[in-house]
Structures are given as C-alpha cells and as structure tokens.
Design a protein around this nucleic acid. Structure first.
Lengths: 219, 219
DNA sequence: TAGATTGTTAATCGATTAACAATC
DNA sequence: TAGATTGTTAATCGATTAACAATC
C-alpha cells in the first residue's frame, strides 16, 4: 500500500497515543471521539495520524486497545530493544544513565564515554565509562544505534562525529549547538536554554488579545 | 505599530540567532545572506522573523551585530535575570541545579523542592531543598516566575498545581505527562522517552525515497 | 549613481480541521 | 435496519519560500 510520508508531528503523537493506551485494559475498545476527549487531540487528527500507516479500527465501533497498541509499537519499531550510548558523563549524563523514563524493556544505556582520564574506567550507575576514542569500535559490538550527547557544546560535534563513525542512526543532543550530520542520521535536540528563553519571551505577555480571537497584537 | 503575533518557531529561532550573534564581534555588520549561510536558516526567513518585531537592519548594508543582539535580548526579555525553582531533586533535578547551560547571568535556580523528608532541609549544589508544600509561599518571595518539574510522572500535576499557586508563568516539564495549566501559564515539555521513540521510528527507515523527491513511501 | 540588502507582499507548501461516504 | 464511527477527501489555516519595491 502506498501512503504519503507521515509528518514528524504525527510520529510524535503516536508516541503520545501509545503512552495513553498503555493505561487502558487490553480488551477494551475505544472510539477516536472518546480518545480525543481523554488526551485532548482532535478525533479526526487521531484518525488521520493512524491512517498514514494503515487501517486499524472497526467502523461503527472504534479501536481495539490491544490491537492499536501493537500496531503503534510496530510502527515506532519498539518491539525490539534499543541500545543506547551516552557521551559525556558530567552531572547531566550521569543522571541520564539511570533515568527511569528510559524504560528498561525498551531503551537501555549500554555504553558511556568521556574524554576525562579520571572518569575513564570507572563504573557509573552500573555502566562502565570508556574513552571517547573507542566509540567507533564499541558501538557496533553493542548494537548501539542511538547516541546521547551530554558533553559541553565545545565537544559535541566531535562526539557526534565519533558516533557517526560508529554508525549510529539517531542522536539525542543536549549540547546547545546545531550538529552537522549526514542525512541518514536523525538528530533531536534538547536545548534547555532555548526552552527557557522561549518561556522568558512569553512571561508577562498579555494573552487577552489572543483570547478575544484577534490575531493582532501591539508591540 | 501593529503586527501579527509571531509564531513560536520564530521565537525559537530568535534564541538561535542570539546564540550565534554572541560569537561575533560587537562592531561587525552582517547581512541576512551571510547569516543564513552560517546558521543554515534561509535569509528571507531571518528577515521575516525579525520583521515581526520591528526593523533593525540597514537597507543595502545588513544588520549591526551589537544592535541586533540588544534587540533580540529585549524581545526575549533577557535583559533582566530570571529566577528558577526546581521541583523534584532526584538525579535529573540535582543535575539541573548546577547545569552550566543555564547561564548564571540570565537564569539562576533559587529554590529547590521535594516531598522526601530525607531530602528536605539538605543543601544540593548550593541550593536548599524545601518541602513542596512551601512552593506557593516561597516563590513570590524569590520572584520566581519559571518552575522546572523533574518529579516522577505521578507527582508532576501536583507539582504543577503548586507552582501555579505560586504564580509561575512558565513551566519546563521533564515528567512524561501532559500537564493541565491555565492559559496564562506556558508549558514546555522535555519528553525524553518520546524523543527516543521518534528516533526509534526513523531508525533503519530508508531515506532514498525522500532524496529522490518522491513524497510516496512504501510501508 | 550603481549595487546591495532590507522590509514586505504574494505564492507556495504542508498540516490541521471539517465533512461525509463507506461500513460495522 | 438504524446509529455510530471509521477512513478519506475537501476546505481551511498558518508557516515557509519567492519575489521585489524601497532605500541605504
């Protein structure tokens, strides 16, 4: 079946749907309308998002929770475990090593790297810290396809280059810098100071104009 | 002057522009074309983003770096220091307490909260940990307008409610849950497992179809 | 002045929302 | 069958990109 490529926001929402579905009993059935009301995403958007990948519902009835979960898991390819490597075990990197949000059954940090000789060889949160130079050699051995960069900005591009040499296909980047990567390596940035600056922008801005449905605002 | 409300992506890029501009000498002048080449954002988009807020350039010449920096700082209201509070001092919260990306001159964590009696009263990274129940009382005293939530998902909405009672206007949420907040409280989510799931989706998907400029893909 | 580049309007693109035929 | 809800097409909305008059 030929379909249009789904936009990334759709993939994002699939992840959201899955998380919600996991709170429901397997044998229940859910209409997009009910689902919409619960998670706050329009029902037609839910149906559209799913339609990019196939038809999973029953007309007149809704979606079987178990079936839908399975399908989303398959679409996101969460049926096989994903091994992770973290580069840069400062405070943030070390915290992420043991982050409970990375559910052990789906994502697991297998390798940690740093360039600080005092850290190399140590074991943090049960993960041994290696020299960054070893990234290209160790990654394939541990089947790591996703790297997490928690180095300072100055070291991030170098870390990315090593990860790319190690044949990762995805990078989660916490360093405040735009990485340069080949097209087949997807990067998701977590740019904390940018996020704070966005919040700063909206502080004390008056939303009354928005609420009145005017799209004009006075500077 | 009346202008259309700028979209959030524009605010996001302003933050990016500022970071880049800070690497240039104050007295230099930069055209949008040069800037574009450097940061990889189309020149007309740069001009459009800036035009939401005024006209800062010189026709035929470009933008004075110093002036542009000042304007963006003003737009993002980064000219006054922003105090932060962190709720939940587990590993991630503690790491963020000392996060160097929160430049001390712009953003500073003033308060930390937890509900664990063993942590309350301790001082971590130079910040004293208080009982979450004290959030509404302490926040105004420290002029905190932005809260960071690093609790488990199960405690996040309660933390958010307390922050809202304490009159925050922005929340940076690391818990994997969609918070419910009033319209005047902006939330930015950092959803690490969602980000990993997005990366997982794109793993091993072949981009050849994209590159050939077909927008059709075979499932 | 001639060349360059801004600020802004118009055209395009892509995602969201609305609407409804298909069908359980 | 009648009512409900999917899957999908069409309309709308909003952001990006293209184009260019204004002007340094």
């Amino acid at each position: 079946m030929l379909i249009f490529k789904a936009p990334e926001v759709t993939v994002q929402r699939l992840s959201l749907y899955l998380r919600a579905l996991e709170k429901l009993p397997n044998n229940s059935v859910l209409s997009s309308k009910q689902f919409s009301k619960w998670i706050g995403v329009p029902d037609n958007q839910i149906r559209k998002d799913l339609a990019y990948f196939g038809y999973f519902g029953i007309r007149g009835r809704g979606y079987k929770v178990e079936k839908l979960k399975e399908e989303i898991i398959r679409i996101l390819s969460l049926n096989q475990k994903k091994e992770l490597a973290i580069v840069g075990v400062g405070k943030l990197g070390t915290a992420l090593l043991a982050y409970p949000g990375f559910k052990k059954d789906k994502f697991q940090v297998k390798l940690a790297f740093d360039n600080n000789p005092e850290k190399i060889g140590k074991t943090l949160e049960g993960v041994k810290v290696h020299d960054v130079e070893k990234i290209p050699r160790l990654l394939p051995r541990y089947k790591v396809k996703i790297g997490i960069i928690t180095t300072p900005a100055s070291a991030a591009q170098y870390a990315a280059n090593k990860l790319i040499e190690g044949k990762v296909e995805g990078i989660l980047n916490f360093a405040p810098i735009r990485l340069i990567t080949p097209d087949n390596v997807r990067v998701k940035n977590v740019d904390l100071s940018m996020l704070l600056e966005i919040l700063s922008f909206y502080l004390s801005r008056n939303y009354q104009l928005d609420l009145s449905d005017l799209s004009l605002a006075r500077v």
